[in-house]
C-alpha cells in the first residue's frame, strides 16, 4: 500500500518532492486520526481519502482547483462513441503517450482513472475514497475515459503525420 499510495501521490502532485511531502503528511494524519477509522470499512479507501484531502488543501492542490475545472458536472453520462478506428489508435499508443495523456487530464479525471484501472478499486470503494455517490463515480469515469481516449487519439494522429 505504501508504494501504491506513493504512486498516486506522485500522479496527483506531478512532482517527486511534493509527492514525498504528501505521503508523509498522509501517514501522520492517518496515525493522528486512526480513531476515526471505522473497523469493517475499507482501509485503502480511507487512506486514499486522507491523501486526496491533504493534496486538495496543499498549494499544488489549490492551484489545480483554480486552473482546472475540479467540480466537473456529474449530471449526465455521455458515453464515448467507440469505433474500430479508435481501437486501432489505442493499439498504437505507447506507454509514454498514455502517461502524457494521463498527466494532461484534470485531477478529478486523473484520480478516478488511477483508482479504477491501476488500483482496481470497485465503484463502491472509489465512492468511499472520493466521498461521492456511486452514480457520480460511473458518470465521471465514463467522461474521464472519453477524455483520455480523445487525448490519445489526437497524439497518435499527430505523431502519424
Amino acid at each position: 500500500m505504501f508504494t501504491s499510495l506513493y504512486n498516486l501521490a506522485h500522479w496527483l502532485t506531478r512532482n517527486p518532492q511534493e509527492a514525498d511531502d504528501l505521503l508523509q503528511e498522509t501517514y501522520l494524519k492517518a496515525l493522528k486520526g486512526f480513531e476515526s477509522f471505522q473497523q469493517g470499512t475499507n482501509f485503502r479507501s480511507w487512506m486514499y481519502r486522507i491523501l486526496r484531502n491533504t493534496f486538495l488543501t496543499s498549494r499544488t492542490g489549490l492551484n489545480s482547483k483554480m486552473t482546472e475545472p475540479f467540480d466537473l458536472e456529474d449530471g449526465s453520462t455521455t458515453p464515448a462513441e467507440a469505433d474500430t478506428p479508435e481501437t486501432l489508435l489505442l493499439a498504437r499508443a505507447d506507454q509514454q503517450l498514455v502517461q502524457d495523456a494521463l498527466e494532461r487530464l484534470p485531477v478529478p479525471f486523473r484520480e478516478i482513472i488511477l483508482l479504477c484501472d491501476i488500483e482496481e478499486m470497485s465503484y463502491q470503494e472509489i465512492a468511499e475514497a472520493l466521498g461521492v455517490p456511486i452514480g457520480t463515480v460511473m458518470s465521471r469515469l465514463s467522461r474521464a475515459r472519453k477524455a483520455m481516449r480523445e487525448l490519445i487519439a489526437v497524439k497518435v494522429r499527430g505523431t502519424a503525420k
Binding site: Y6, H10, W11, L23, T87, L102, R145
Partner: peptide, 27 residues
C-alpha cells in the same frame, strides 16, 4: 468495438500508470 477499446485503454493505462516508486529513504 466499445468494449474492446475500453479493455485496451484499461490495459495500457494499467501498465503506464504504475510508474512511480518511493525510495527506501522516504519510507
Amino acid at each position: 468495438a466499445g468494449v474492446l477499446s475500453r479493455l485496451q485503454l484499461k490495459h495500457v493505462t494499467r501498465s503506464a500508470g504504475q510508474r512511480f516508486r518511493p525510495t527506501p529513504e522516504l519510507r
